[in-house]
Simulated assay, not measured.
Amino acid sequence: MARVVCIHGIGRQHTGERELRGAWHPALSDGLTRAGAVTDLAADDVRCVFYGDLFRPPGRTLALGDPPLDASDVADGFEAELLLAWWAEAARTDGTVLPPDARTLARTPQAVQRALNALSRSRFFAGVALRGLVLDLRQVRGYLCDPALRDAVQQRVADAVTERTRVVVGHSLGSVVAYEALCARPDWPVRTLLTLGSPLGVRNLVFDRLRTGPTGSPGDWPGSVRHWTNLADAGDVVALVKDLRPLFGERVRCQVVHNGARAHDATRYLNTAEAGRAVEEGCRETGEAGV
């Protein structure tokens, strides 16, 4: 039974829970070391919730790769708007990316193609194929707009959290999953929420679509959580809004970290002293520090 439950973000459909834990557990441990923490996390203390397979077409194997997608596969509405928001943020943080102009923001098919072209040349999305960008957009839309898919993801989180769980970590879209799960289940014993590269602060597209239980509303404090730390790299395009306090309250500790060229990388977030301090804080409240 894990003390720390971690939830991944977009683009992880070709991995799995054990592979993720193999990367995330050492990064978490390094973060604790950087923080000078006394908590020692064994591998069994960490569990990664995996839901990427829900986005993977049935009957496919890794050898076949992703389906061939292009600009025409970006749906009007949510997907196009999120793509353009990523483009604008990439241009703001990366001088090599030409910014969109007023005409581009009309969300025409040409604008979508220009956005994909610009992002594919940015530092942030370096190495990500165009089809990968389109699939990432689809995954965000799928979770936020498909109730059945959302319920399936949430069930996997519920299956992972036990009476021993004190820390929940959410990266990227996983931070949205984590927030919603904690809001809907205030009886959970979780004391610390750590969000990394989170899009929770993006109004209209994300914040206004949050599902927080039958009596809740977006911006509510996440259930039984006592401490919420949000980390964002200044160049993280997914984390369009770095400071969550205007929407979620002054209790959220919002900190900017520096992840180098891989601004959105989960392990680079996890191995920071800031992440280590947040995890230590949650484990310490259980009386299990040093176990």
Rank of each mutant, 00 (worst) to 15 (best):
I7H: 09
G9N: 09
H25E: 13
A27N: 07
A37W: 01
D40H: 11
L41D: 15
A43C: 12
C48S: 08
L54Y: 01
G59M: 09
D66W: 13
P67I: 07
D70R: 08
A71G: 13
S72F: 10
S72N: 07
D73K: 05
A80F: 12
A80G: 15
L84I: 00
W87M: 13
A91V: 14
T96Y: 06
T96R: 08
D101A: 03
R103D: 15
A118R: 14
S122W: 04
R123E: 14
R123S: 12
F124P: 13
G127C: 07
V128S: 10
L133Q: 13
L135D: 14
R141H: 14
Y143Q: 13
L144C: 11
C145I: 13
D151W: 11
Q155C: 05
Q155T: 00
Q155W: 00
T162D: 08
R164P: 03
H171Y: 04
S175L: 01
A181G: 04
A181N: 02
D187K: 10
D187N: 08
L200I: 00
R203S: 07
N204F: 11
L205V: 10
V206L: 12
G216H: 02
D220G: 00
W228N: 02
T229G: 08
G235N: 10
D236V: 05
D243M: 09
L247F: 05
F248Q: 00
R251T: 06
V256M: 01
H258D: 15
R262W: 15
A263C: 12
L270P: 12
T272W: 05
E274L: 04
A278C: 04
G287K: 03
